[in-house]
Simulated scan of single mutants.
Amino acid sequence: MSAALDLARALIRRPSLTPDDAGCQALLGERLAALGFALEPMRFGDVDNLWARRGAAGPLFVFAGHTDVVPIGDRNAWSCDPFAAEVRDGLLIGRGAADMKGALAAMVVAVERFLAACPEPAGSIGFLVTSDEEGDAVDGTVKVMDALGARNERIDWCLVGEPSSDQRLGDVLRIGRRGSLTARVRVVGVQGHVAYPERALNPIHAFAPTLAALCAQDWGGDGATFPDGAFPPVSFQISNIHGGTGAGNVIPGELVIDCNFRFPPRPGAEALKARFEAILAAGGARCEVQWTLGAQPFLTHGGRLVDQVRGALGAVLGVEPALSTGGGTSDGRFIAPTGAEVVELGLRNASIHKIDECTPAAEIDQLADVYEALLHRLLGRGA
C-alpha cells in the first residue's frame, strides 16, 4: 500500500467531527517535523490549528486544508464503519476520504518526496491546517491569517486541497469563489384568532407578494471576468421560513425568512443589499433585516501559480483543467485578500458529505504526484 494511502487511512481513523481535530494535526506534525518544519500549533476557542513552515526565505508556498469532517448521518446507511478507512474495489471509503484527508495525505507525501530530491528549495514551504472549516470558520484559518499578518509573514502562493475535481482527477481547477451574503428577514404582524382576521395582521399574507417578487428577480452577475471562464451568476435561495405557533386557529405575530446570495464581484454585496431592501420597502410589509456577510468573492488569474498548476496537471495526468469559480465557499476566502495567489485542487467531489463518502485510492497517489511536480516547478532549483 502506498505512503499517501496509508496516511489518508490513518487520518480517517481519527473521527475528527468539527471542530474536534482528534489528533490529526499531531500526526501530520510528526511527519512535517521530521522534514525540518517548525511547528506552531495555534488554538483559538475550541479549534486546533497548525502553522508549519520550513525555510525563511521567499517566496512562500503554502498547502492549506482542514482536518475536521461533517457528521456521518445515519450510521446504518453506511456500507461499512465510516471511520474504518476500508479499501474496497479500489475505493477508499470513509468520512473525510475526499473532503479532505486524502488531499492532506497527498500534500505531506509530496513534500517528503520533493525534499528528498531537492533538500534546499528556492523558497519556503508552509502548511496551514485547521479543524474549523466545516463549522463556523471563525476560529480557524481566519485567525491564523490574522496572526501571520500581525508579524508580517506573507504567503505568496497557496494551494487549498478542497475536492475540486469532477469527472476525473484534475479536470477542474478552482481559481476563485463567489461571495456569500445571508439575510434574515423578520416580518412583523399582529397575532390573533383566524376567525377574526380584521383584528390581526397576518405577516405571511402581507409578505407573500414580496416573497414572490424576490424569487422572480434576475439578480444578474456579469461573470466575464477572465478569458478562460466566468463567475456563475448570482444565486438567490430561500433556506428557511418559519411562522406560526403550531396551533391551527392562530394567526402568527411574525414571520422569519432566511435567504442567501452567492455572488460574483459584480454586482457585489452592497448592490445586492440595496436591491433587496428596495423590494422589501415596495412590498409594504413591516420588515426588519439582519445581514451576515460570510465571504467576499475572490479570484486568482494570470499569475505564476495558475500557470504552474496547469503545467503540472498536464505533465503528470495529461489533463487540461477547466478553470472554475463555482461551488460554495472555502478557506481560500481568508487567504486571498492578503495578496496571495490562491487555487483549489483536490480529489473528486461527487461523494463529499454523503453516505459512503469515497475516493479512488489510486488517485491519492496521483494527486501527490501532481503536488510534487508543482513544488519542483515553483521551488525547484531549476525553476
Rank of each mutant, 00 (worst) to 15 (best):
D74Q: 06
R266Y: 05
D46A: 07
A122S: 07
G73A: 07
V144W: 06
A64Q: 06
R286D: 05
E254F: 05
D166C: 10
D222W: 01
E254L: 12
A361I: 05
K354Q: 15
V188Q: 09
G268P: 06
L173V: 01
V69Q: 03
Q25R: 15
S131Q: 06
E30R: 08
L50V: 01
T130H: 08
L378E: 00
L214F: 10
T245A: 11
D20A: 11
F61M: 02
S131D: 02
G244S: 06
A271C: 02
A340L: 08
V62P: 01
D81H: 08
P265M: 15
G221Q: 06
C80S: 15
E357K: 12
R43I: 14
A295C: 05
C215K: 13
R199D: 12
L305A: 00
H205A: 10
L128Q: 13
R186M: 14
R75W: 09
L50W: 01
A350S: 14
E357N: 03
D139K: 04
A362L: 13
L255S: 08
S324Y: 04
G23P: 07
L32Q: 08
A285C: 10
A216I: 04
Y371D: 01
Y371V: 01
G243Q: 00
G328W: 04
A64M: 15
I125C: 02
A213L: 01
L169R: 04
T225A: 11
N202F: 13
V172F: 09
C259Q: 03
T225N: 10
V47L: 12
I355W: 07
R54H: 03
H353W: 08
P360W: 06
R168E: 08
F231E: 00
R174Y: 13
H193S: 03
R9L: 02
T329S: 10
F61E: 00
V309A: 00
V306E: 10
R184F: 15
A26R: 06
L17F: 08
D166L: 14
G380N: 01
E30G: 15
E133C: 11
M107R: 07
I352L: 04
I251F: 01
S165A: 09
Q237E: 13
V69H: 05
D48E: 15
A64S: 15
R75M: 06
D132R: 14
D139M: 04
H376F: 12
R178Q: 04
Q290Y: 03
G96V: 02
E372K: 09
D365P: 05
G302C: 07
D222H: 11
N260S: 09
A77W: 06
Y196S: 12
A150S: 13
E277Q: 11
R333F: 14
F61V: 04
S239G: 04
R262C: 03
P264F: 04
P71R: 11
Q191M: 07
F231L: 00
E288W: 05
Y196C: 15
A52E: 07
F236G: 07
E357Y: 08
I72D: 11
C215R: 07
G176W: 02
L28P: 10
P252W: 08
G221V: 07
T225S: 10
A64K: 00
D6H: 10
